[in-house]
Structures are given as structure tokens and as C-alpha cells.
């Protein structure tokens, strides 16, 4: 991204094509060139609009992450029946040896 945000003003970095491409990679979206152009324009306008939140005076305001005032919602440690394996694998795009088959992984060894 091009620069650091400055939260105390409505100023914010624009999202250019390169930023969109980076975010799309992070989000596993193989966007096309045409989409990059279109999204850059549209998201720029959206970002202008949503950056209005930075105008709010929120000193000493606690963020709301949950709309319900609940804590400590827990379940007892009791095992309950799992799904039948046939049902588990029935929806899979590919299965082999009772497992989900996935394309080769180019990542770290786990």
C-alpha cells in the first residue's frame, strides 16, 4: 500500500490497481485485468465514502464488536454424534481414500 493512514483526518490512501491486485491475491481471487480497472475506480469511490468514519470523535469510545451483552457462553464437554462419512464426502468436489482430495500444495511443510 502506498502510505500509512492518518486516522485523524478524512485523508486516506487511494486504492490503485496494484493495491487491488495485492488484496485480491491475499483473498485468493484471480481477478482479471478488466476487473482490476473497474474495481480500482469503484472501490476508490467506496473508500472515499467509508473513510467518513474517521471524522467521528471517538476518543474514549469502546468499540462494539458484539451486539449482544453476553459472556462465557460455553458448552459442556460432551461428545455428540458426528456426520456419517458418506454425508461428509458427498459434497466434496473430489475425494479419495475417505479423504478430501485437493490439488498439490506449494506451501510450508506442516
Amino acid at each position: 500500500m502506498s502510505s500509512e493512514p492518518t486516522p485523524d483526518t478524512a485523508a486516506h490512501p487511494a486504492l490503485d490497481r496494484q493495491d487491488i491486485a495485492h488484496l485480491a491475491r491475499l483473498a485468493r481471487l484471480a481477478v482479471t485485468d478488466e476487473e482490476l480497472d473497474r474495481f480500482a475506480g469503484q472501490l476508490g469511490a467506496v473508500l472515499d465514502a467509508v473513510a467518513q468514519v474517521q471524522r467521528a470523535d471517538v476518543a474514549d469510545v469502546v468499540p462494539t464488536t458484539h451486539a449482544v451483552p453476553l459472556t462465557n457462553v460455553l458448552r459442556a464437554d460432551v461428545a455428540t454424534p458426528s456426520l456419517p462419512r458418506d454425508a461428509v464426502l458427498a459434497g466434496a468436489p473430489a475425494a479419495e481414500d475417505d479423504r478430501f482430495r485437493v490439488p498439490r500444495i506449494l506451501g510450508e511443510e506442516a
Binding site: 481471487l29 468514519v53 474517521q54 471517538v58 469502546v62
Partner: peptide, 26 residues
Amino acid sequence: IILGTYALSAGYYDAYYGQAQKVRTL
């Protein structure tokens, strides 16, 4: 998805997602 990925990404969280959650409180 792209907008949300941006709003949560390192360095932008406080200015966007965090700020929005505070506005939610208001």
C-alpha cells in the same frame, strides 16, 4: 471481499475496521 480484506489488513485496521466499531458504539 477486497474492501474487507483492505479494512482488516495490518496498518489499516485501526483507521477502518476499528474506527467503524467505535462509530457503532456511538
